[in-house]
Design a binder for these strands. Structure first.
Lengths: 258, 258
DNA sequence: CTCCCTGCTTCCGACCACCGGAAGCGATCG
DNA sequence: CGATCGCTTCCGGTGGTCGGAAGCAGGGAG
């Protein structure tokens, strides 16, 4: 760039993106000086970039002077493949499961070593919410996570199993036991958890498979969460399976391959 | 910027944003040369910017070489106020209405002279879909639109009423008749349409109000769409009203003012 | 097999848009 | 009323950026 840059070698674009990167779930509304701090850039520079981003509609300014994500970025986000392909196809099926069971249903994909929650249907909150659309939870402590873990490439599974975090006192952190559990998920075709991520809840999940030239591939996991006093958890597995197959079939139709 | 720029005076940031702006609903996956064309920039320049945007995660590259919106932009989109405040609060209420009626329910806000659809719940499609989350439809031809129009500032309403587009053969395009209809919406507290936007469907909608220091403000519209052979449309108004009040109350609690 | 075409990637020198400290401004607080 | 805090405006020196040209890869025609 130019001028007496104190951090030479940094492109303008990367700075603009750093401004956007200052926003996250914990900080969705930020003032100029907060953004400058979070992005580690001079206040003046941030000010100029904010002007351009706001003009375009990437950000917008609130009456109180803070900035927040603008409509234009919301629009763009709707074009992301998770949203456009997976969510739109899956949403009606999640609704079906919810209608049949009245419990919280959600759909997740694997992103690196986390389960990324892509869609969620829940009525008035009967169970405390740990997962929200867009949140990432560990693969080894959730039912959807275990399903995704069982289908993950060897190196990812290895990395997760080596150092599992403890989320509650029931989280399985013994690599050997986790490994056996994952093997069982593969064999049985579903995964379950009992208060391993949040106390007071049980969960089951099944894989969503899509037929590919190279054989079926697990592209997502469909799970349901219930309060832990429920005893009939496994009764839900067939319901989930029906929905998961429906999603898989629709996906295969929507995107012939790839 | 620098170099033998053929369009001097254009900032780097605006170019990066122009690349993002090349993506829209009709073109969610683009190749390098398509983006260059759509953004009216030299191929080389676009190539460089794409590299940076992809590295950051704003875009991602598909196996076939095209680009699409990346996870990181999807994430940011989730932080937009429509999503974070309105949608999240409203979703359970839409679900309730859907459960009670089995019809397609949606929530829209006014954006300029359009109704922007913010959330939608529909089971397996019984009615052809014109509205999707993120789509914009005219204010004068949809039930949610009429509700929003009835609450819009005078200049906006004036502009819409002056030149209403014809969507179907039932669309009301006579300014005088539209004006009377809007007045009636204000009086009765709900709006309806009969095949004015898409043939074969009827719709009713009610306003979602939030208490403000300056009195109640209409922040959104809640509507329901049914096939046109249904005769009991107005029976749905009280159901919508209950849900709309619930949403309004939750919103007021979530954002004490503003 | 070779040639041509299309679309993407790499290279690099001239140049001007960008950087950010400094100063100004308006609101809030003690 | 002076001090402080946060935002906005100003402006000169310079290194990041621009984009034509050339190289490369893949695929289709002859």
């Amino acid at each position: 760039m130019a001028g007496r840059s104190s951090t030479p070698g940094r492109s303008v674009t990367s700075r603009a993106l750093a401004v956007l990167g200052a926003f996250d779930t914990g900080a969705p509304r930020l003032s100029l000086s907060e953004i400058a701090e979070r992005s580690a850039m001079p206040l003046t520079t941030v000010h100029r970039l904010l002007g351009e981003l706001t003009d375009w509609g990437a950000l917008q300014r609130r009456p109180d002077g803070r900035y927040e994500i603008g409509r234009r970025l919301w629009d763009l986000g709707l074009l992301a493949p998770v949203q456009l392909e997976l969510r739109q196809v899956a949403a009606p099926f999640l609704l079906d499961v919810h209608t049949a069971t009245r419990d919280t249903v959600h759909l997740a994909v694997r992103e690196g070593r986390s389960a990324l929650y892509v869609e969620r249907v829940s009525g008035r909150e009967s169970v405390p919410v740990v997962s929200q659309v867009g949140s990432r939870l560990p693969l080894h402590a959730t039912a959807v996570g275990k399903v995704l873990l069982a289908a993950a490439p060897e190196d990812v599974a290895e990395a997760v199993l080596r150092a599992p975090t403890r989320e509650t006192r029931h989280t399985i952190v013994d690599p050997g036991r986790l490994r056996r559990e994952i093997a069982e998920v593969r064999r049985r075709g579903y995964a379950r958890t009992a208060e391993e991520m949040s106390l007071g809840t049980l969960s089951v999940a099944v894989p969503v498979r899509v037929e590919r030239p190279a054989g079926p591939a697990v592209v997502a996991a469909l799970g349901i969460v219930v309060p832990s006093h429920r005893r009939d958890l496994l009764r839900l597995v067939p319901v989930l399976e029906v929905a998961a197959r429906g999603i898989g079939r629709e996906l295969a139709r929507a995107q012939p391959f790839h």
